[in-house]
Write a protein that binds this DNA or RNA. Structure first.
Lengths: 207, 207
DNA sequence: AGATTGAACGATTTGTTGATTATTCAGAAA
DNA sequence: TTTCTGAATAATCAACAAATCGTTCAATCT
């Protein structure tokens, strides 16, 4: 099985180079195969199709990002508000920069999220797990209080949808998006009700 | 000027019929012109282009909707939470049903929001005005408290973006969208902080 | 046997051509 | 003059052919 994994790695590696050089659409299976010194047909013993190679690349890259998010969510010495802030902002910034600087990455994101909606779902689920942990920890410390944390996490994601794939949904610049995310986040935490404002400014003053 | 308005009306009326029968793309300017017994060139004395006729139709329709929203926002005998609820839900439901039942309406919505982003912006602004009034009134009654109402209204819109053109952004069914909007709205009002839950259940119990 | 190939197949894309259509504008009609 | 026309124009679309490419699988190799 070790050999099989090495071959898979070779394929993913070759595809990664081609995709980022020439783009997903302009890369042919025959090219990837010849980069790995094999026939096109043989690729299909390792991946069900072209899109699955792209998905493998995306998964690899995304896993690193997830690890980073996990660290942000359990930072000691920060309160829940700040950890949630770091989490949501990191997500916005990384996606924004990635898609901004690299049109190939943008193409791949578009293709995958179009042809494999389940992938976007899987990402949401992973991040939701992190969110739930954050909410759990926050409740233990008495910072947040929520009845159904699973549901609450879903709602936080729903309300911040716009910041997940920023340039698929709007043409706003990063500073504008950041200002908006900041505002939405504060609203989600403090709510619209009277005591919220007081609570919030009291917390700020205490720092 | 009265004559000009009558002609405009005739054009809009003919276009409305054609668009809803055959679709925007399949309707030609020559057809609309002949419906109004004029030459195609003459249309351009009344509208800068085809898209502007579509925009006029959309504006007319949307204005009626806006009036309805305004009424919902100032309903006497309802608290701010319920009025906000009615406002956001009405918006979700009307758009959902309109686009669901009528593929022509869907086509027009897609074309206009693609080619005229400023139109979507104008709609958002109008609804924001209503939201701000609602927030104002709620503050007077001591139900909500917000520092900058203009900004807060923007943030409420940002967080509920997903429910504004439901079928452009997701494939969720109406019940699922409603469940999600309900959750997001409660979060926006009550926030994540401890006293929120207590506040909320107290309010419910008092009814 | 199992692993690999590469020609064959069907789907998709590309390139090309001709027609359709939005828009303009010189001039006719009022 | 002002209002309108309809032919001219340029852009877009539709249709078809050719080529390309993802995928499969019978045959070949190890």
């Amino acid at each position: 099985m070790a050999v099989k994994d090495t071959v898979r790695e070779c394929i993913v590696d070759a595809a990664k180079k081609r995709f980022s050089h020439f783009g997903y659409a302009k890369t042919t299976m025959a090219e990837v195969a010849s980069d790995c010194a094999m026939s096109p047909g043989n690729l299909y013993r390792f991946f069900p199709g072209k899109l699955d190679i792209a998905e493998a690349i995306a998964t690899e890259d995304y896993s690193r990002h997830l690890d980073h998010l996990r660290k942000l969510a359990i930072q000691p010495g920060k309160n829940a508000r700040d950890r949630l802030h770091d989490l949501l902002f990191e997500e916005l910034r990384r996606t924004y920069h990635k898609l901004e600087r690299d049109p190939r990455a943008f193409e791949m994101a578009r293709v995958i999220s179009q042809e494999r909606p389940s992938f976007a779902n899987w990402m949401l689920e992973n991040e939701r797990k992190i969110l739930i942990e954050l909410l759990d920890e926050a409740e233990r410390r008495g910072e947040f209080a929520t009845a159904d944390k699973q549901f609450t996490a879903e709602m936080v994601q729903s309300a911040t949808m716009k910041f997940r794939y920023p340039q698929l949904w709007s043409k706003l610049t990063l500073p504008k998006l950041e200002r908006e995310l900041e505002g939405v986040m504060n609203l989600l935490i403090d709510g619209l009700c009277p005591d919220a404002a007081a609570r919030h400014s009291a917390a700020r003053a205490a720092e």
